[in-house]
Amino acid sequence: MATTVNGAFNEFMGKNVNLDPNKTKRARKSRDNLIDNIHGLNSDSNFFNLYSDIDISFGSFARRTKIRPLNDIDNMIGINADGSSYYENLNEVKIYVHDSNSPQYNCCNNNSNVLNSTKVINKFITGLKNINDYKHAETHKNEAAATLQLKSYEWNFDIVPCFMTKTDSYDRSYYLIPDGKGNWQKTDPRKDRVRVTSLNQKHSGKLLDTIRLVKYWNVRPTMPSVPSYALECLLLEYYDIRDETSDYIDLRFKDLLLFISNNIWNPIYDPKEIQGDLNTLTYDEKLKISNRANNDYDKACEAVKEETENKDHEKSIKKWGEILGSEFPKYG
């Protein structure tokens, strides 16, 4: 229950959108403990020679744009190349293993020295099954990671084996991760992390909460959902071209609804300059998302008018509830 719009949004964000701070703290501790346990596998001569210097957490939890529930935490675990090399052709990346590297060579395609990423994941799964405090390890549904279920917590870990390339002629290096088909693909979560952090600082720390609120709106069953990473990149485009933003999250949210309605039709380019256009939505999906965002923008304008001009917080809170659902606080 709330008597002001600001109070309603504060309550809503704390109880329904943002991760619980205590749970986040436990999750980070359990993540660090898991990574230590994985590196303990280095003592097994039959396991890969791990390269902790390139380990990195990625995904929305690492970027602090994750909303409730906390159900998965993503981590890349580095493997030392040990003489291996890679070759790229039309975005298909293959890693060629040195014959003397038996742990990697045993994960190659039959009668070749081409490293099979699915076999690498399976080797991680075999090792993870022997770690205490974890009850189940399996291949992720996208076949590009090992998913580990915990005994004591509700969140899972997605463990992604990776290599790091040498710096190229453009002074860039890349992570090589499984592509879900047995080969490898380029990525660079460092780019995403730096972009989110710098734009959040540019807008005085107001960006992260706003992204989370839009993500909550995005997964409500009122329209097709924009893929989470593509949506985040679209929102960052908005903040990248603006120098100022409102102090009030309801006003920021209102403006983003209009931006989504107008721009969901456009390409959403990968800021890492690897994947190209991330907007894979169909015309029908774009139409439904655009219409919902526009309708909710109109309602948001009504809610702001009730609050600022008519001084009627009760009507304003009710209107915001029409946009954000029954979990939004009632007036009172």
Rank of each mutant, 00 (worst) to 15 (best):
R26I: 13
H140S: 12
P267T: 05
D250S: 12
I268F: 01
S204N: 14
Y174S: 01
A8H: 02
Y87E: 09
E273L: 10
Y239D: 05
L258K: 07
K123E: 06
Q275P: 08
D44I: 04
F12I: 08
N111V: 11
L324K: 01
G321F: 08
N80Y: 15
I260Q: 07
N91G: 01
Y269M: 11
N130T: 15
V120G: 04
N266K: 02
I95G: 06
K29P: 15
P221R: 06
S225D: 02
P161A: 05
Y175Q: 04
H313S: 14
N130K: 14
Y283C: 06
D247L: 15
V5L: 06
M164H: 13
D243Q: 10
K272Y: 03
N37I: 06
L150Y: 12
T147I: 12
K206I: 09
N16L: 10
E327S: 13
I274N: 08
D74Q: 06
F163V: 04
D32N: 12
K94N: 12
K202I: 10
L251N: 14
K315D: 09
E307K: 11
F61G: 01
P267V: 03
T197A: 14
Y229E: 04
A144G: 09
D82N: 13
I260R: 01
I125R: 06
R292S: 06
L128W: 05
S85F: 11
L50T: 10
N46C: 11
I35N: 02
Q275F: 08
K319R: 11
F259Q: 02
D158M: 08
K272S: 04
V93S: 00
W184N: 01
S84V: 04
N142E: 12
S152A: 13
C108A: 12
E285Q: 13
Y170T: 15
G40V: 03
Y96M: 09
D74H: 01
D255N: 13
F12Y: 10
P271S: 03
W320E: 03
G332Y: 12
S173P: 07
F157K: 01
R195T: 05
I73W: 01
K254W: 09
K186T: 07
N291T: 07
D179S: 07
E244P: 03
Y170N: 15
S246K: 10
M76I: 07
K191S: 15
E285G: 00
E309D: 15
S225Y: 05
L19A: 08
L281W: 09
P21C: 07
I95H: 02
D250F: 10
W320I: 08
S228A: 08
S117Q: 04
K129C: 05
A146C: 07
E306C: 08
Y51D: 13
A303N: 05
C301I: 14
P329F: 00
L287V: 09
E322K: 12
T197Y: 09
K186R: 10
L199Y: 15
F58M: 10
L115R: 07
L208P: 03
A230I: 03
P103M: 03
N262F: 14
V93Y: 02
K129I: 05
N91F: 04
